[in-house]
Design a protein around this nucleic acid. Structure first.
Lengths: 98, 98
DNA sequence: GCTTACCGTAAGTTATGACTTACCGAGAGC
DNA sequence: GCTCTCGGTAAGTCATAACTTACGGTAAGC
């Protein structure tokens, strides 16, 4: 989650949501240098959000279904929790009105 | 989204998911000082994730349903998109195998 | 085998932002 | 009216991390 805080890193992450890509292909689309992209990928990989596989000379990065799933689970729990809080707040507001 | 990058700020955000709270109540639960909490709340408010209302002497913060909804919509789109990419990748993998 | 493309890592710079202390204004209670 | 709590803002410090250039190592292509 902290890994998605940086806008550039989030852009890379969203770009990978379109499908796997090599580092060079990512870098040409980004306003930053290739090493910068490489470092961001390292962070994303450490966060478990991204996978890499060797393809001949190049290295192909793609989203990690497990990491994405964990992220989704976190938010699903959050929505449920927040929704409960909203309802409670609404009821309390109603009580105040009545 | 960038606003949720900081762990402390995310902790405040999650704390508000339990229900509205005053600044002081938040600060006593947090390992940081009250002004720090205040600054984080300012960022969250600017990001549209949080609402504040005056209650006598104190200021009560709560989640902003609109902001939370927008966040949720963003992720819903993302899941759908990423899921499509996963399927395509799987199919391509199958083709390679066959 | 030599060059060329691709990529990761190291080192260094710089900017950003998270946090603190100190200060100030505003409402509550006696 | 005076005090006391609550909370936002200012100023300043410090750490983190995002980015660059430079380098090295590995696979492909001729």
């Amino acid at each position: 989650m902290t890994a998605l805080g940086d806008p550039t890193r989030r852009a890379i992450f969203e770009r990978l949501a379109d499908g796997p890509s090599s580092v060079g292909a990512l870098a040409t689309d980004m306003p930053v240098s290739r090493p910068a992209v490489s470092q961001h990928l390292k962070v994303l990989k450490a966060a478990g959000l991204v996978l890499d596989r060797q393809a001949g000379n190049r290295r192909i990065y793609s989203l990690d279904p497990d990491g994405v799933g964990a992220l989704r689970a976190y938010f699903e729990r959050f929505w449920a929790h927040a929704l409960g809080a909203f309802k409670q707040a609404a009821e309390r507001r109603d009580e105040e009105v009545s």
